[in-house]
Design a protein around this nucleic acid. Structure first.
Lengths: 235, 235
DNA sequence: CTATAATTGTTAACAGCATTAACTTTTCAT
DNA sequence: ATGAAAAGTTAATGCTGTTAACAATTATAG
């Protein structure tokens, strides 16, 4: 890992580019992402940036990857903090679910960059983004595994078993992720739960439900509790 | 409503602009929205379009309004068709919920235009978009009113009563919409249910859950049924 | 220590974008 | 038929990403 002086310099410049890009976006929205603006803020001429990125899309892609990772990290931190305070798997799960929204509200532009339609004409290359993008769901799923194992969640009724039409594909997904087959129900709970909270945040970010329900902190917390309840969580 | 010949011509031109804009967007994504491209396709010079729209943003805004209305219309049609076939309120509700996704899949770009971050640097003026944007939630809410009134939905447990912290604001929202106060629970169900299906579609559109669950038609249908079940719907 | 190569940066230019101003043509109404 | 209103054009401004050609800097090998 020994880096020459120049390599370190280069890494620093790349980091600065991303940092400035992030600032610009936070200030002016996803529209603020402009090669010329970044270069200007760094005291460079625009073409200089092309020594560090093939083009603007590549820069965006790297920002997206970092955002996916930052979100997943935030979830992991929230989970671990909860665990450190002796929180059960269910408590950890709720902590992670709350962290999902907290991160989205703290970094609305970054959240839109990964879960909205970031830049017109730009399509994120799946082969690069899939892995970091999957981390979020995996965290939720793993917590579901723990909750099922500990019996904190005792699913009943419709939620007690996986819909047969979906079971095969879900199991394949687990195989692909090298996870044990018994986790299928947990994965199902993951893909059920994730969109439930994601939709709230999406609509909140664009102001579609805020004015109606008023206190979105409370609303979100209750929906998290509703989700846990529906999955069979009993306090 | 008597229109002069010139007024009719003008309306036709405006309609053509929007139509071409829609085509361009459907083909090249939200990025395809370009004054020059539209003008080119119409055999006009770019500045000519400024006789019909103050600027590109205004055109986008009008497209957004039309999209909100088109989506709500699609829901209403689905609901009415179901009603015409003797469907109960619950069946109508599920028809509307399925229509929400169907419209999104049929018009992915239009859906992103209203529920994603459409164009960088563009922010939809709320005073114009709020009304058409609210129609969707209203349709869901009204169906919840009907389901509650007919007893098709008998909410239990957590869903039996509105969280006290939210009740006041929800009632205010009803007053604003000149709806009777007894509909508060229905409105609550609306703001619960809408994000639940919205999140699925958002994640589906960006390819985040498709590969995992496989058959999204089935997955979505089951989640609609889960939602209905959680709200207290018993077949 | 010097010469050579690699790296980093610059200037100039191209093509595309939205938008405005000034001017011309077309169309309608008095 | 005349004059006003509407529609469309050309020319220009100032943005954008990107490329090519060239200059300066920096590291490495002899």
């Amino acid at each position: 890992m020994a880096m020459t002086r120049r390599e370190r310099q280069r890494e620093a410049t790349i980091a600065e580019i991303k940092s400035v890009a992030r600032q610009q976006m936070a200030q002016y929205g996803t529209a603020g992402l402009s090669i010329r603006a970044i270069a200007g803020a760094m005291g460079l001429t625009p073409p200089a940036l092309y020594r560090y990125f093939d083009n603007l899309n590549e820069l965006i892609t790297q920002l997206i990857v970092e955002n996916f990772n930052a979100l997943a990290d935030a979830l992991a931190v929230a989970r671990d903090e909860s665990a450190g305070q002796g929180g059960s798997s269910g408590v950890q799960m709720m902590a992670a679910l709350l962290a999902y929204r907290r991160w989205a509200l703290l970094h609305p532009v970054d959240f839109q960059l990964i879960y909205g339609n970031p830049i017109p004409g730009y399509e994120a290359p799946r082969e690069v983004t899939v892995a970091p993008a999957s981390r979020t769901l995996r965290i939720f799923t793993e917590l579901c595994v723990a909750m099922l194992a500990s019996g904190e969640i005792r699913p009943t009724g419709r939620y007690a078993r996986i819909p047969p039409e979906l079971e095969a594909t879900l199991q394949d997904s687990l195989k692909y992720a090298q996870a044990p087959e018994e986790h299928t129900l947990a994965l199902y709970f993951g893909v059920i739960g994730w969109p439930r909270i994601h939709g709230i945040i999406m609509l909140e970010l664009f102001g579609h439900i805020g004015p109606i329900v008023g206190d979105l902190d409370v609303f979100y917390r209750i929906q998290v509790e509703n989700l846990m309840h529906d999955l069979g969580y009993r306090t």
